[in-house]
């Protein structure tokens, strides 16, 4: 089995993995980072979005071995102890989550949007979320939360 080494949430990790192991399974099963979820098998739901080298990526579309040397941030790597990232805080404040299952992917994806577009319009937010499914919220409060977080992050 090949060995793969990467930085995950600022920590160096390495393991022997089967070549077919997906990044999401490596994160969940080898590293115990179960905040990244699997909601489909066709790379559409977006529950597994993580940050790889500064871009949001569906971790079910990457093999773990493709991430050799990469810097990966998962939902567990955002908050500083009890202090939430502004995007997490905006989701909490705006009731942008219900069952919580899609939430990690939503938050990771939203952070990438705001990095690329500091003041996204409602339409831009809705279109950006094309790859993230939520069955609980009707997206209403997610859109509100992302707009609010963008404002906070602009300062």
């Amino acid at each position: 089995m090949p060995t793969v080494a990467m930085m995950v949430n600022g920590k160096k990790v390495s393991a022997d993995v089967e070549p077919r192991t997906l990044l999401v399974h490596y994160l969940r099963e080898n590293l115990g980072l179960t905040g990244t979820h699997v909601g489909c098998d066709t790379s559409q739901c977006g529950a597994c979005v993580v940050d790889i080298d500064g871009a949001s990526v569906k971790s079910c579309t990457q093999l773990a071995v493709q991430c050799e040397g990469a810097h990966v941030t998962t939902i567990e790597g955002l908050a500083q102890g009890e202090t939430l990232h502004p995007m997490q805080e905006a989701f909490r404040e705006n009731h942008a989550l219900q069952c919580g299952f899609c939430t990690p992917g939503m938050v990771m994806s939203a952070i990438d949007l705001v990095k690329r577009n500091k003041s996204p319009s409602e339409r831009e937010i809705r279109e950006w979320l094309e790859g993230n499914l939520c069955r609980c919220t009707g997206y209403h409060n997610i859109v509100k939360a992302i707009a609010a977080a963008a404002q906070t992050m602009r300062g």
Partner: peptide
């Protein structure tokens, strides 16, 4: 929300 937002939910597959 805190646990869901920080990836600390505890779903069956976790």
């Amino acid at each position: 929300d805190f646990r869901f937002l920080t990836g600390r939910g505890n779903y069956t597959d976790d």
